[in-house]
């Protein structure tokens, strides 16, 4: 049997809200070490990779590897039936064709159970090569969300340029052009508010804002986001999930025609 109890159930709610518009169906790979998911969007432009380690659950039981194919829109609807402070348990019997979701109120006086039919998903796994990135930018996730939203006023694409001074987002379109420049923070009260640029070499890449906007829906998961860039390789956008794992998005750059 597979059973994973997540005391902070709202993490799962935020996760599914973050990916449901990008990915329709996904296979949750359940292993003794934890739960993972990898899926491409329907256009095969971006990739989502989720990891939730077993030690983030309490308890976590996985006797043998299981693949749970789940429609994320259905899952999102079911998760809306839980409260933010509910403890959420995912369970799957060995021979079952469904995943069971249990929502437990903090005082355990309300228990709801939903049985979700599993779906068969033909999902090819991609191997993500290890990359030494030219630039790694860390910033508040709310700032990332705001910049992406602001740049969308101007056009479909954003050019992100990292240098020793900081990071510059710029866009141009029919109505005009604009940019947002973030300097590296010198002194901040909280690390979560800082902007840092770890630079090997200056790099400038162009990306589709539509996808960055979808990625930024993960902002409620984590106060900070990390953007990793290298010339001619996909951008890595990473949100850490408490102390238990991460939600990563990869986006292929745009190239000049």
């Amino acid at each position: 049997m597979f059973e994973a109890r997540l005391p902070q159930g709202q993490i799962l709610k935020k996760l599914i809200e973050a990916v449901r518009e990008l990915v329709t169906d996904a296979n949750f790979e359940c292993k003794p070490s934890g739960l993972s998911l990898q899926a491409m969007d329907s256009s095969h432009v971006s990739l989502v990779s989720l990891l939730m380690r077993a030690d983030g659950f309490d308890p976590y039981q996985c006797d043998r590897n299981r693949t749970l194919g789940i429609n994320l829109r259905t899952l999102a609807s079911v998760l809306k039936c839980s409260s933010n402070d509910d403890i959420i348990t995912i369970r799957a019997e060995d021979d079952g064709d469904s995943a069971i979701l249990i929502f437990e109120s903090p005082s355990s006086d309300r228990l709801s159970e939903f049985d979700l039919k599993l779906v068969d998903i033909d999902n090819e796994q991609l191997v993500i090569p290890d990359t030494q990135y030219d630039a790694v930018v860390r910033m508040p996730s709310a700032e990332f969300q705001r910049i992406v939203r602001d740049m969308q006023i101007l056009g479909d694409s954003v050019t992100i340029a990292c240098s020793k001074d900081g990071v510059k987002f710029s866009a141009n379109g029919e109505i005009g052009s604009g940019s947002v420049r973030l300097k590296q923070s010198s002194a901040v009260d909280s690390e979560d508010d800082a902007v840092t640029v770890d630079l090997q070499q200056a790099v400038s890449l162009t990306f589709a804002l539509r996808y960055l906007s979808l990625f930024s829906k993960a902002a409620p998961l984590s106060p900070t986001v990390t953007l990793s860039f290298s010339k001619d390789v996909p951008l890595l956008v990473e949100f850490r999930i408490a102390d238990m794992g991460h939600l990563r998005f990869y986006l292929a750059p745009k190239i000049d025609e």
Binding site: M40, S46, L126, T206, K254
Partner: peptide, 14 residues
């Protein structure tokens, strides 16, 4: 502005 490269161009199939 530019053409979109698919992600499968960078990550190979297992």
């Amino acid at each position: 502005a530019g053409s979109q490269v698919p992600i499968t161009h960078f990550f190979y199939r297992d």
